[in-house]
Amino acid sequence: SAFKSLNADAKLTAENMKGPLRDVRRALLEADVSLPVVRRFIKKVEERALGLEVLEGVTPQVQFVKIVSDELVQLMGAEGSKDLNPGQPQVILMAGLQGVGKTTACGKLAAFLKKRRKSVLMVATDVYRPAAIDQLVKLGSKVDVPVFELGTAVSPVEIARQGVAKAKAEGIDVVIVDTAGRLQVDENLMAELQNIKAAVHPTDTLLVVDAMTGQEAASLVKTFNDQVDLSGAILTKMDGDSRGGAALSVREVSGKPIKFVGTGEKMDALEPFYPERMAQRILGMGDMLTLYEK
């Protein structure tokens, strides 16, 4: 891949890093990392690497790769996966643009939590999309988790409030609130989301982001985070070919971690998010790290 041009110099210098930095930049752009995020990232790597004495027995190439991948992992929230926030009940509010995979993620998360022996209730507040409630109800029966719904004539805020109240009354461990897809610039729907949040005090507010998202990712993450103060994100459709650079934008722009990734349409296709794996995928550099570990 990208890091051929460093030779056996003893030091990383502005001069000998130029080529490799350009390669990293291209890799990030091909992976759909937003341009401003790329710019800041390259600057950071350059600063960290400049003048760093290359370790005995390690080529500058390997040293450079190590810095890049460390910095990427750092940017995505340090090594290891992040769990949901605790609470009794845990209330998880899902948010995001249209069609990203929120409703599907509700079902998957419900299945995931059931495996942890938690009792779960899903709440259907999407009163806009045709058959959105049917979809959640069907997924609920697939994973054997009840769904609270009041049809499409009641306001989403009210449905959410009643759903969470019911869960509390029945001593249920986790409530997952599905919401309609919305545009970050749609003032009415963003206000509605704020009102839902105020009504149910979620322990987690998760932005669901499609891994195929291009340059719009940074601005949508920023707006959602500014308006509803996210606690994290779910990155969906990772079973596709896209490198998922949106992951980098999520963390860099919002400071919030990605907690799960979706890897398919089935209800068991949900995994914890590992920044170190994502870093490799974004750079397309599986071999590079094994090279370093030797």
Binding site: R129, D134, K138, E265
Partner: peptide, 16 residues
């Protein structure tokens, strides 16, 4: 004939 709710979604559109 696969995704949950896909048929109902189209039914709603057809009706409208």
């Amino acid at each position: 004939t696969f995704r949950a709710g896909a048929v109902e979604q189209l039914k709603t559109h057809a009706m409208r």
